[in-house]
Every structure is written in C-alpha cells, then in structure tokens.
C-alpha cells in the first residue's frame, strides 16, 4: 500500500521556523513507523534526524507524536495508523532538530526524586527477603523505560516544565512501595511540593500514552494517598 507520511522538520542551522514535509512510500501493514522513517532517511532525505535504538519498544529512544498521540515509533504499526501518518516531536521539551528534543529537563526531574534504592542497614550475606506479595506491590512501576511519552502528554507539564511530571513520580513510586527501601518519607516530602504531585489533575493522558501499559495515574494516586494519610498501606 502507498503511505503518505508528513513529518515535522526543523534544522536550526538552516530553518528560521519549523515546517512539515510530506513523503510518499510503499509499505505493508506490519511495517513499524520507525521502518518508514528509516526508509525516508535512506532514500528520500538523509538529513531527517531522530533517535532510535532497540526498535522493539524497550529502549525508549523513539517517543514521538504519531497522529497526535505520544507513541514509540517502533511499537506503532501501519496497521494502527492507516495510510496517512503525521509525525511530530513530543511536546513540552525544546526541539533541537526534527524529531529530536532536549531530554535534559526530563532527566533532571527524574534525578530529583531519589530514583535509587536506599537502605543503609548492614547487608545480609545473601539476599534481603521479600515476599511475592511485597514484590508485586511495586511491580507495575518497575516497567518504566524513561521514554517520556507520559510526561510530555501531560497538560500540567506543558504548562510548567518545573512540574516533576508523571515519569518522575512513577520512578519514585517504584521505591516508595518497595518493602526493602528506607527513603520513602524523604521522597514523599519532595513530591509534596508546589511543583510536585499536586500538579496532577488526573487527566489520564499519561496512562493512555504509556507504551509499557503502566497504570500511571493509579500510581500517582497511590503516592497522593500516601502523602495525605502518611501511610504506605
């Protein structure tokens, strides 16, 4: 089938402002949008720039807006998009070139929530024990690949980049509810900030955008509840 793919283009070394460019190419239903971008780059316009690596939805490099929704280009098939596809950079982060945005503010927010395991008690000779139920408690949020699909779909983040955003809260959740971790109180304090969890207005864009199907809004709700009740139960 013939596909028309309209791509947001911007090269700061040449363009005064962004533009859209359309490309026609042959594709099959099982082609990934990433495959189409590669073909455009290979045979129609070598200057097209985007990030990609694993090409099957795990590395999180190729988050972009595809027909208006935040998606990974490698996990979106022509079968899902139809023959007319519009591809744009994710919103809320500065565009550097074409589909590449500045990820630094996103990672800065991530780093600010103590996104690592804290437990200063003496280490046992073997593993710290954890029941399957305790492990299950935070399973969903361990799936995060830091692609930024959720955070850059959030109107609160669009309004203010200082808002930590869903991805940072998801990563805080992963540790707050880990029975082995000891820094939950500190994380909850960080999240109970004017640019923290209260900027979430349960719009659910994040949940819809997550390519890992993490229940993002639910996780944020659990953190909110922990802040209000002071309990992790």
């Amino acid at each position: 089938m013939q596909i028309t793919i309209k791509i947001f283009r911007y090269n700061p070394e040449k363009d005064k402002k962004p533009r859209y460019e359309s490309y026609k190419l042959e594709a099959v239903e099982t082609d990934r949008v990433l495959d189409l971008l590669e073909k455009v780059k290979g045979y129609q316009d070598g200057t097209l720039s985007f990030r990609r690596s694993c090409a099957h939805g795990i590395c999180g490099s190729d988050a972009m807006r595809i027909n208006g929704f935040n998606r990974l280009a490698c996990k979106t098939l022509v079968r899902d998009t139809g023959a007319k596809i519009t591809v744009e950079p994710i919103l809320g982060l500065k565009v550097i070139k074409d589909l590449i945005v500045d990820m630094e503010p996103f990672f800065e927010n991530f780093r600010s929530v103590i996104p690592y395991f804290v437990n200063d008690e003496p280490e046992p000779a073997q593993e710290r024990l954890q029941s399957p139920e305790q492990r299950e408690r935070f399973d969903d949020t361990t799936k995060c690949i830091l692609c930024a699909c959720c955070t850059t779909s959030c109107p609160s983040f669009w309004a203010n980049e200082q808002y930590l955003g869903p991805a940072a809260i998801v990563n805080a959740h992963r540790f707050i509810f880990d029975s082995r971790d000891r820094a939950a109180a500190e994380r909850l304090k960080i999240l109970n900030d004017i640019f923290g969890i209260h900027r979430c207005h349960t719009i659910f864009n994040c949940t819809l955008a997550c390519p890992r199907e993490i229940q993002v809004t639910k996780a944020i709700g659990e953190v909110k509840k922990a802040i209000v009740t002071g309990s992790l139960e």
Binding site: E123, E127, R128, L129, S131, P132, R135, T142, R180
Partner: peptide, 20 residues
C-alpha cells in the same frame, strides 16, 4: 554478584520463602 545486585535494589522475582 547476584546478591550484590539484590543489595542495590534489583527487584528479582521471589519464591514463596522470599528468596530470589
């Protein structure tokens, strides 16, 4: 090496006794 990863917080799946 596995126990060290666990001590770093790696969320291994668990047996009913809570082991890796």
């Amino acid at each position: 090496a596995i126990y060290e990863l666990e001590h770093m917080g790696l969320p291994f799946d668990r047996t009913p006794e809570g082991k890796i």
